[in-house]
Nucleic acid binder design. Structure first.
Lengths: 329, 329
DNA sequence: TTGTAAGCGTTATCAA
DNA sequence: TTGATAACGCTTACAA
């Protein structure tokens, strides 16, 4: 069913039908009603493609998320969903699995104008590619922005967050602290490692390069990294982990070696995903304001959609250290 | 940049440019090269909306997933992504959060032809709405199909899976078994409860209506349901849970009451999500062939896209009971 | 092999 | 208040 058929059935022009269904322009009440009756009767729904072509708007926002489908991303999505829908947009989610080839397919939705904007929660692009793309299409980053990319983004202060977590461990008496980090080099991992190092230096417990283990960013990676640490000549009494998933892996190894997390060894994770409070023992973690990150990212994108040449903004939102059972008080 | 501009710059017609970029029809090598040079030079990308309008294809498949962002759905998505991309489609994910109002927005993408098909991993629609929609648009269900909906779908045999899990518990010696189920009535919960009951009856341990607790389908729900069970006059020695999330909640309560899962009480979850093997103790669970479900759902959808009147198929894929530390051998 | 032009389904301008 | 029509950017008969 197309608008022309409705027009014919209602005995009016397509223009009148269009005006009626879009509530735009003057249409007499009688005509309006006659048109709506036909519309309902035949379940007419305007074709979005025709409309998009004419208005050069799709009403859709693309959101890319990496391979880890966890509560962390979900809360961000909720924020994005809330705000985009307030602005009359639908979001569509692109599960990139961290693969460039998949990401590229989705980016082509942006360049071919299948979507009006793009919020990237991760990206395989480097700073320059990202910048180029953002000069031509509405694009913002959230949580993780490649170093030096001149693109609007919202994130937490990863350095400060890590610093604070490590500082806490030091203040409760630890002097032999290790960090389990991701082998994937990204801005957040660099910043968190720097926060770890700076805290160790500032509070005079020092660190060795071997105190930071890089491994796969998942459960197994955390497990194996912890195994390496605990079997070294000087095992740590506390471990700061790049993520909760790695923390869970580490805790598993600790259990298997007969120790009790939060008693024999302290653990702090990152991101405060669902598992961290569901786990037994519950896991201390650094929480990011996910919902607000989603809201803010959307606001930044709306500015860019309105005016592609608006100034690039970097927004830093507050983090929070949440102490649970894997750290003693 | 539009095709007409490229045509002018290359000194050819728009038809020739179109033929060149689509590799369709005869174009002489020289012209082809000249066109491609201009295309590259100006980074021309065809507008997808114009193309869609003309071809009445968008190349996009919509996949709706409910509020639980867990590895279970992720693996299904991987399967869908694999197969759709082999067929030249992009998937877009609709996080419906189980809310009808959000789901409706996404369904309108189907009715307005913004997508070519729809794979629903969940739905708020009833059997009749679903059927009506499927008569007019390519649509398949995966994992969970409303009872009586005459729609193509792929799922496991939930009754048999639950039956097998409970049968196992009985065979290792339990005679006082309870089930923690979801308070949300859906086909899978009905089937799994029926499997539980039938196993109890077939192996002569019987059951009372109070042996099945319905609660919120999440961590807290599992926790509280377990609390109710353990404080009843006749606490169970084994619990079969509707999902791993509820199992995790139950296990948490068991720990807190000083018991050891897998020793003092056996637990079996459902879905085999990441957490179930990451947890300590690791959780016995019923695994669904997620990746294959994704593949199969896509195949079913492709049939419907090819011919909306093709026969409706119901595909049952095999499940698998995975025994881990929360059940004794 | 290449070009012309119709048409996909809308919205919006302009005239009536 | 309404209608005729151009335009959005593309693909594809059909003609040359």
């Amino acid at each position: 069913m197309k608008i022309a058929e409705i027009a014919k059935l209602a005995g009016v022009s397509v223009a009148t039908v269009s005006r009626t269904i879009n509530n735009r322009g003057k249409v007499s009440p009688e005509v309006q009603q006659r048109v709506m009756e036909i519309v309902e009767k035949y379940h007419y729904v305007p074709n979005a493609t025709g409309r998009s072509l004419r208005t050069s708007k799709t009403g859709m926002i693309l959101v890319s998320i990496p391979d880890v489908f966890n509560s962390f991303y979900f809360d961000i999505l909720q924020g994005i969903e809330k705000r985009t829908s307030e602005n009359g947009y639908n979001i569509i989610v692109a599960p990139t699995q961290g693969a460039r080839i998949i990401e590229d397919k989705y980016i082509s939705m942006l360049t071919t104008k299948q979507v009006d904007g793009f919020i990237a929660l991760n990206t395989c692009m480097n700073a320059e590619e990202l910048y180029t793309l953002s000069r031509n299409f509405p694009l913002v980053m959230a949580c993780e922005c490649p170093f030096g990319a001149n693109v609007s983004c919202v994130e937490i202060d990863n350095h400060a967050a890590a610093y604070e977590a490590v500082k806490y461990l030091i203040h409760v008496g630890h002097s032999q602290i290790s960090m389990i980090s991701s082998s994937l080099v990204c801005t957040s991992s660099i910043q968190r490692e720097k926060g770890f190092k700076d805290a160790c230096l500032d509070f005079q417990i020092g660190y060795q390069d071997t105190d930071i283990i890089h491994h796969l960013h998942n459960f197994e990676g955390g497990y194996e990294a912890c195994q390496m640490l605990m079997n070294s000549s000087k095992p740590p009494t506390a471990i700061f982990c790049y993520s909760d998933e790695m923390a869970v892996g580490a805790i598993r190894y600790i259990f298997e070696s007969g120790l009790i997390p939060g008693k024999d060894i302290d653990i702090i994770g990152f991101d405060n995903i669902d598992i961290s409070q569901m786990y037994t023992p519950s896991i201390s973690s650094v929480s990011q304001p996910c919902y607000d990150i989603g809201i803010t990212a959307t606001d930044l994108l709306m500015e860019k959609i309105k005016d592609l040449d608006s100034t690039v903004k970097k927004v830093i939102l507050p983090h929070r250290l949440i102490l649970r059972q894997t750290t003693k008080i």
